[in-house]
């Protein structure tokens, strides 16, 4: 195990990571362990509300995030880190709204006070990818690679909400951090033109035809780029890309089946974590066959 740089992070897994995307959670924790990043799970965290709560009631949606942020503040650690881009953007958005709307801030304060919590907005909302690329950084990651992935062609899929709308740590349109990380792990990032195009997310359930069209374009773009697999950095993107490849192929009239991995599974393997530790058997797309 690598030496810790002494910094501890509050880890906010989010609902998907407890079951549906438990392999993402396992691989994030595994990678953190290998690189000496100390992740401390936020005590009694609640759902961020996703893109659903805010679509019906913004004020209640913001208090969901404010409770998580206030619990994180209480720990004294400066960062709250999540691996789900949905959670990431929702927490960041709540911070922005509360900061610019004094009435909302006052109401949030009163609401939190009923359970003894206070909110000042001084916790930074971070994505795991940001922490890996910027805090751990290239040198330490390259130095920790023990299983070379040379020759593996990877389509890095960012999804939408990791860079947009705030662009805190990467470009909104043409991000590169995940490409970098893939390269540092020894694999080869392919030129993937749709890397930050939306997968449609929940539309796969509510508007399946539109969902299949969007996912179809992404899978085809990755295959056309010559990728052996796609890596994702969001639990919702992941489940959307992996779950309906047969239906999507039928919809498109073309075979677009391709293995999909969490980016932390790829990195984790490079760092020497086993298939079992990375829960590769959870994959619906034979991800285990891609990695040595």
């Amino acid at each position: 195990m690598a030496a810790s740089n002494g910094k501890k992070y509050t880890y906010y897994p989010g609902c998907s990571q407890t079951k549906t995307s438990r392999a993402y959670d396992a691989s994030v924790r595994g990678v953190a362990g290998k690189l000496g990043i100390e992740l401390v799970e936020l005590e009694d965290w609640n759902c961020c509300g996703a893109s659903n709560y805010i679509a019906i009631d913004a004020r209640k949606a913001f208090v969901l995030s404010a409770r998580n942020l206030a619990l994180a503040e209480k720990t004294g650690r400066p960062d709250i880190v999540t691996s789900c881009s949905g959670c990431y953007v929702i927490l960041a958005k709540a911070k922005k709204y509360i900061k610019t709307n004094p009435k909302l801030h006052k109401d949030i304060d009163e609401a939190l006070a009923t359970d003894g919590l206070t909110y000042t907005g001084n916790v930074s909302v971070r994505h795991v990818l940001d922490v890996l690329v910027n805090d751990v950084a290239e040198q330490r990651i390259r130095a920790a690679v023990t299983v070379p992935l040379a020759g593996l062609k990877v389509a890095p899929y960012y999804g939408c909400q990791i860079g947009r709308p705030y662009g805190e740590f990467d470009d909104e349109e043409w991000p590169h951090t995940l490409d970098d990380l893939v390269a540092w792990s020894g694999a080869e990032p392919v030129n993937f033109p749709l890397k930050s195009k939306c997968c449609g997310g929940i539309l796969m359930t509510t508007q399946p035809k539109v969902g299949r069209t969007l996912v179809g374009k992404l899978l085809k773009s990755a295959k056309d780029a010559g990728a052996d697999c796609i890596v994702t950095a969001c639990s919702l993107c992941h489940v959307t890309l992996e779950s309906y490849q047969k239906k999507v192929s039928r919809h498109l009239g073309e075979d677009v089946n391709i293995p999909v991995l969490y980016f932390t599974q790829l990195l984790g393997r490079a760092l020497g974590l086993t298939h079992k530790e990375l829960m590769l058997k959870d994959s619906l797309t034979h991800a285990e066959a891609v990695l040595p």
Binding site: W45, V63, A111
Partner: peptide, 17 residues
């Protein structure tokens, strides 16, 4: 969650205000 009662109180405050 353990703090569900507390969360529900917070939601009620946001509704009232």
């Amino acid at each position: 969650i353990k703090g569900i009662k507390g969360l529900q109180k917070m939601m009620a405050v946001m509704e009232e205000r």
